[in-house]
Amino acid sequence: MRHWNVYLSGEIHTDWRQEIEAGAEAAGLNVSFSSPNTNHADSDDCGVAIMGAEDKKFWHDHKGAKLNAIRTRTLIEEADLVIVRFGDKYKQWNAAFDAGFAAASGTPLVVMHGDDHQHALKEVDAAALAVIETPAQAVQILSYVINGDMPKG
């Protein structure tokens, strides 16, 4: 049986990743998950912690973004599927970039968001193979594409 690698990108303020992981485990899916560093402070400060302090915030952020890109790009390129969640808090520009990178890399993309983001994300949605609203739908997609299982209900 094929093992699937799924990259979970997007907002870090809710437990949506854990919901998908628990649902996939409950369904017995042969899948492993990866994600960006979801510790906001570590993600922001990794560059200066490793390569030295910066006087200007731009260069502080620049160093961190480049280090995070090593992880993000590698894991997206290795993924069989990328799921990107856009949440209600903040603007997730990095998530939009991850979605674009996945699409440009030819990695299948699923986008998750509520109706309130529909217009703003229309181009991102157009690049996706599925647009969903809930982690449960993500689990159903995984169950279908991995095992061919239709939702019960």
Rank of each mutant, 00 (worst) to 15 (best):
M1D: 09
R2C: 03
H3V: 05
W4I: 06
W4T: 08
N5A: 09
V6N: 01
I12E: 02
T14N: 07
D15K: 08
D15N: 12
W16E: 01
R17T: 00
Q18A: 11
Q18C: 02
Q18E: 09
I20E: 00
A26N: 14
G28A: 09
G28I: 05
L29I: 03
L29E: 07
N30W: 06
V31D: 04
F33Q: 01
P36M: 08
T38Q: 12
A41G: 08
A41T: 11
D42F: 14
D44H: 12
D44W: 12
D45Y: 11
G47L: 09
V48K: 13
A49F: 11
M51W: 15
M51A: 14
A53M: 13
K56L: 13
F58P: 00
F58I: 13
F58K: 12
H62I: 06
G64L: 08
L67K: 10
A69P: 00
I70P: 00
R73H: 12
T74E: 08
T74L: 11
I76R: 03
E78S: 09
A79V: 02
L81E: 05
R85S: 02
F86C: 01
F86V: 00
F86N: 01
K89V: 04
K91V: 03
N94Q: 11
N94A: 10
N94G: 13
A95N: 01
A96Y: 03
F97V: 05
F97N: 02
F97M: 09
D98W: 04
G100M: 08
G100W: 07
A102M: 05
G106A: 08
L109T: 00
L109I: 02
L109W: 02
V110I: 13
H113V: 01
Q118R: 15
A120Q: 10
D125F: 00
A126I: 06
A126S: 15
L129F: 06
A130H: 12
A130N: 08
V131H: 05
V131P: 03
V131F: 02
V131R: 10
V131N: 07
I132C: 06
E133Y: 01
T134A: 02
T134Q: 02
A138D: 00
A138F: 07
V139D: 12
Q140Y: 06
Q140V: 11
Y144K: 13
Y144S: 13
V145R: 14
K152M: 14
G153C: 07
